[in-house]
Design a protein around this nucleic acid. Structure first.
Lengths: 108, 108
DNA sequence: ATACTCGCTAGGAAAATCAAAGCGGCACGG
DNA sequence: CCGTGCCGCTTTGATTTTCCTAGCGAGTAT
């Protein structure tokens, strides 16, 4: 029972982050390696600049991603998963697999 | 590459549902068995009736939970995970474990 | 100089969430 | 019978979040 309550609290905590529109998708987009702002923006259909900026900022603050500035030339900013962020990937992968099997696909 | 693109589309699809505030927590609350509206509302701190109602309706429409009316007396409505919903639990459990290890806890 | 890309930010509109009252139905007790 | 309380929602309006899009300053190339 105590474990059960603890589990719900942890899930609630996790979805304080993941339950915001686009956060998980942004994280998933970084799975294959670091990317810049515009790269992410182009990779994710339907995501506006301002929300991307907000999400990157939040995910950085929560420690799931890290922002790095390469001084160039040309100057470049990139974002990559931290160890915490990487540790979440297996679960996100599992969710992807679940979605492929259980959610209607609108074609590809 | 094609697999990679497909994976991002699946994650996007999954978080069309899970990325709405409270959906995952509602699903997690049904892990231990069927529950009524008021039971869920009491179990989840901070969740308003109107959003609970919306979420239950959406999750039902997406096939993750099922709504059952027991004619009584007393008449009772309950919600439970479908097979699709149950199939998501391992991933949510993994996220719980991740949160316990990687997200600051505010005490319990 | 112009044109382009980058990484954001700002302002306002649209959508989602929140807060709380209330509805109709039902069950129970006096 | 009536009154009360619980249930499962819905409604309304306020607040917050997300979205849209223009634009900024910095940097690079022509």
């Amino acid at each position: 029972m105590h474990e059960c309550v603890r589990s719900d609290a942890a899930l609630t905590r996790a979805f304080r982050i993941l339950g915001k529109r686009w956060s998980a998708v942004v994280l998933g987009s970084l799975r294959s390696g670091p990317a810049g702002f515009r790269e992410l923006s182009r990779a994710i259909d339907g995501l506006s600049d301002s929300v991307l900026s907000d999400r990157l900022s939040e995910l950085t603050k929560e420690g799931l991603i890290a922002r790095t500035v390469d001084e160039g030339p040309p100057v470049a900013v990139s974002y990559e998963l931290t160890e915490s962020g990487k540790a979440l990937m297996p679960a996100l992968h599992q969710i992807s697999e679940w979605a492929e099997e259980h959610l209607l696909s609108e074609g590809c």
